[in-house]
Amino acid sequence: MNIRERNQSYEDLTLINQAKFSKDTLGRKCHELEDDIRTVFMVDRDRIIHSKSFRRLKHKTQVFIQTSSDHYRTRLTHTIEVSQIARTIAVGIGLNEYLCEAIAMGHDLGHAAFAHVGEAVINDFLPGGFKHSEQSVRVVSKLEKGGKGLNLTAEVIDGILKHSGLNDTNNIPITLEGQVVRYSDKIAYVNHDIDDSIRAGLLTEEQIPKHLIDELGNSNSERINTLVHDIVNNTVKNIERGNNKVSLSDKKTQALLELRSFMFKNIYLGNVLKDERKKAGFIVENMLQYYFGNPEKMPVMYRNIADEEGKERAVADYIAGMSDDYCLSTFNRIYIPKTIVY
């Protein structure tokens, strides 16, 4: 028995029957010999963490707030928080925490520069639309490693693709671990975005509806703790009743959705950041148009995509992969004069 097989035997001892066992994976698109030490989901996690797309998350916006302070979340720290919450829930239920971790680490790799503002602009530009969840799959399946992709397992790719939309009953992940990450993403961003918004002076504790404070807690950590305990306890009850479904209780689901709606109204789509969203959208729009008109300015891989799949697809891939910082610096290089013109 090698070390990987020993790790797989630990899964037999610690995971519930409804978990996804690494030895039972649906496999990879291209067959590979298994690692002697790591299970397939550990390998997927490591490939994602060591990818260029993952490193770029450190300079991608979580919420479009001026990140002059080191204490604001970025897309990278959001990803780490999602992973932490997902692993805690997985251990509480008896699911495969390494599968949860791999999905969590890869779920936002396809987010564009300037978060959902960039996503909305690219969605209008690209025929067929643009969704960051689909782009995340494209990143790990095609764009990484110079066009080779990371060759991840089917379970991880499914979890990445279906991590958005709690109310979409037609888009439920095939594994309970994927469902855990789906909830963990919402638990993480709703709560840490409140924390960042208060720090930025865009929101006050008093503005948060009192009945939601009473239901979930009076701080970021209290609310996360409440939701994590609820989802573990409620899911265990679901499974005991023969309903293999990850879910919060009805009361906590309603509270989380209300808190999310509150954030959309007041922060994500509120007037307080309206001007900044316009600026970000202007930059992304002009970057898209510039490279659409000058595809030869893109790196070779994207020029090849333009030949194979069309210029819109290639330009969308290139701009979506940019960090905020790189997008801004490139915009300045293209559009801002460097010397006085007489």
Score class of each variant (00 low, 15 high):
residue 167 N to P: 00
residue 167 N to M: 09
residue 168 D to H: 15
residue 168 D to T: 06
residue 168 D to I: 11
residue 168 D to G: 07
residue 169 T to S: 12
residue 169 T to A: 04
residue 169 T to G: 01
residue 169 T to M: 08
residue 170 N to C: 06
residue 170 N to P: 00
residue 171 N to E: 11
residue 171 N to L: 10
residue 171 N to V: 04
residue 171 N to Q: 03
residue 172 I to G: 11
residue 172 I to E: 13
residue 172 I to Y: 14
residue 172 I to V: 15
residue 173 P to F: 14
residue 173 P to G: 12
residue 173 P to N: 10
residue 173 P to T: 11
residue 174 I to A: 13
residue 175 T to N: 04
residue 175 T to W: 02
residue 175 T to V: 00
residue 175 T to C: 01
residue 176 L to K: 13
residue 176 L to C: 08
residue 177 E to M: 09
residue 178 G to A: 04
residue 178 G to R: 08
residue 178 G to S: 12
residue 179 Q to K: 04
residue 179 Q to T: 07
residue 179 Q to H: 05
residue 180 V to H: 05
residue 180 V to D: 02
residue 181 V to L: 07
residue 181 V to D: 01
residue 181 V to I: 14
residue 181 V to A: 05
residue 182 R to E: 09
residue 182 R to I: 08
residue 182 R to L: 03
residue 182 R to D: 02
residue 183 Y to N: 09
residue 184 S to F: 02
residue 185 D to I: 03
residue 185 D to A: 06
residue 185 D to R: 08
residue 185 D to L: 05
residue 187 I to D: 06
residue 187 I to R: 07
residue 187 I to G: 14
residue 188 A to F: 04
residue 188 A to V: 11
residue 189 Y to R: 04
residue 189 Y to S: 12
residue 189 Y to E: 11
residue 189 Y to W: 10
residue 190 V to T: 15
residue 190 V to P: 00
residue 190 V to F: 08
residue 191 N to C: 13
residue 191 N to D: 12
residue 191 N to Q: 15
residue 191 N to I: 05
residue 191 N to L: 04
residue 192 H to R: 02
residue 192 H to T: 07
residue 192 H to Q: 01
residue 193 D to E: 14
residue 193 D to N: 10
residue 194 I to H: 03
residue 194 I to Q: 09
residue 194 I to Y: 02
residue 195 D to H: 06
residue 195 D to R: 15
residue 196 D to M: 04
residue 196 D to R: 13
residue 196 D to N: 14
residue 196 D to Y: 12
residue 196 D to Q: 09
residue 196 D to K: 08
residue 196 D to H: 12
residue 198 I to E: 04
residue 198 I to H: 05
residue 199 R to V: 00
residue 199 R to Q: 01
residue 199 R to L: 04
residue 200 A to W: 08
residue 200 A to H: 11
residue 200 A to V: 09
residue 200 A to G: 14
residue 201 G to V: 08
residue 201 G to M: 05
residue 201 G to T: 02
residue 201 G to N: 05
residue 201 G to A: 09
residue 203 L to Y: 13
residue 203 L to G: 08
residue 203 L to N: 11
residue 204 T to S: 13
residue 204 T to Y: 05
residue 204 T to G: 07
residue 205 E to T: 07
residue 206 E to R: 05
residue 206 E to V: 15
residue 206 E to N: 15
residue 206 E to C: 05
residue 207 Q to H: 14
residue 207 Q to C: 03
residue 207 Q to E: 15
residue 208 I to P: 02
residue 208 I to F: 04
residue 209 P to K: 15
residue 209 P to I: 03
residue 209 P to T: 13
residue 210 K to T: 09
residue 210 K to F: 04
residue 211 H to E: 06
residue 211 H to F: 03
residue 211 H to I: 00
residue 212 L to W: 00
residue 212 L to H: 07
residue 213 I to Y: 00
residue 213 I to M: 07
residue 213 I to R: 06
residue 213 I to P: 00
residue 214 D to F: 03
residue 214 D to P: 02
residue 214 D to Q: 14
residue 215 E to I: 01
residue 215 E to T: 08
residue 215 E to M: 13
